[in-house]
Design a protein around this nucleic acid. Structure first.
Lengths: 238, 238
DNA sequence: CAGTGGTCTAGACCACGGG
DNA sequence: CCGTGGTCTAGACCACTGT
């Protein structure tokens, strides 16, 4: 992204993070920002719109753009973010073990979800995430094999997202997620540090590319005492 | 909202829900929509932007706006939505019992969160949500008393949000949420149909008005087997 | 009243996709 | 090549907030 409004957006985020604008302050008016960034007002407004959507500011008509307290939000499990990205950002003492890497035929249900001909080949990957020496998360992923050529078990031990976005140059665009609580399966007990009969938090995700093709189905199974999900949401009236 | 782009947005949503555009179809081009709605292209684009953010369409450069399959998303626990609104929308067989309605002094922590002088009066409300005859959810809310004049236990048995938005004419704007899993307290065991020692899904929320003042702190405690949270999220690269 | 954000317009140029 | 969406502009008018 090298668009003008996106640069302005990032510039203002940096200003907020570095404390040049504190929570409760109002940003300079849109008119002032047009001269500061040498941009038209609509361009400024696009940048402010994004800041507002991401929880950085609240726009108040007649007053200005008030900076919100973003401190309590800095654990962005919400949105579309990979475990490795979180690991780096938060400096978690984490590691990944690949426990399965199989090629198999799609089931009827999977073929339908991926809009592929039945019996198309899928990659099935299972990974255990360890944090501070404990096995906390079991991630199970399915990809259409044709979409991720060259993907190896070694790559899966690092960041699949980095491989997809940087090496394959695919653009991940959006995801649908569902969080439910399930009872631990035998597999959970075997692979994670959980007791039989314990609850497991299950995050199902469907991840899509920018042309709206389904790239990935994920089932992420979390030990409940280490699960945390944070969201910023705006209200949309009916 | 009676803005032009919002009417167009709603018009297109209705078209999608009523099947005039099916998943996989492309909407008419932005140029065509300008003549159809007698609006400028930027106005059309504002409407399409919202459709995109809410998961209705995916815009693809050079091609058009593709309609997504919105069927799997129609359980919007994500966003800022009240229990009563969900109840109505989904036709749940649900009821609410108010189990506490107290006026008390704010703790230091609460006073700080609400940015009120210490010892300001708060309302503390606890409600049990029953679905199909089972006590599933315990909601505990705190409001600054001054912000919700006239709120009674009777109103709390219905929709507090409806009272706030329709009667008090306040506008709820955004919320920060956190989902964690806790072990059932004695209070949970007493008020909900759960076993001692069971897990409880806890949703902490901070709800804000459009001038960014904190209106409400909520702790919503869910029986795990009936908890479900669905989200649509777009990826924002670092 | 002046200053703020909210909406809308008409036109321009660019980047991408597909024939 | 044309049609698509992506960005940017300059200017206009309105609605709201505060003095």
């Amino acid at each position: 992204m090298k668009s003008k409004f996106h640069s302005i957006y990032q510039h203002l985020i940096r200003d907020i993070h570095e404390g040049r604008y504190m929570p409760g302050d109002t940003l300079p008016s849109e008119h002032e920002l047009t001269t500061q960034f040498e941009a038209s007002r609509e361009t400024i407004r696009k940048a402010l719109k994004q800041l507002s959507e991401h929880g950085y500011i609240q726009k108040i008509q007649g007053k200005g753009s008030v900076v919100l307290d973003v401190q309590r939000l800095d654990f962005p499990v919400s949105g579309v973010t990979s475990f490795q990205e979180l690991n780096q950002k938060l400096g978690m003492n984490a590691s990944t073990a690949v426990v399965a890497f199989n090629e198999l035929k799609a089931t009827a249900e999977q073929a339908h979800a991926f809009q592929l001909p039945e019996e198309e080949n899928l990659l099935e990957i299972a990974r255990v995430r360890m944090i501070d020496g404990e096995r906390i998360i079991l991630d199970k992923d399915w990809f259409p094999k044709a979409l991720v050529p060259g993907l190896t078990a070694d790559i899966c031990a690092g960041s699949i997202y980095a491989y997809i976005e940087n090496t394959l140059e695919l653009t991940i665009s959006f995801a649908k997620k569902e969080i439910v609580v399930d009872v631990a399966t035998e597999e959970d007990v075997e692979l994670l540090d959980v007791e039989p009969g314990s609850h497991i938090v299950v995050v199902h995700s469907l991840t899509y590319l920018e042309d709206a093709t389904l790239l990935q189905i994920t089932e992420s199974r979390h030990r409940p005492d280490r699960f945390r999900f944070v969201e910023f949401a705006r209200r949309h009236k009916a």
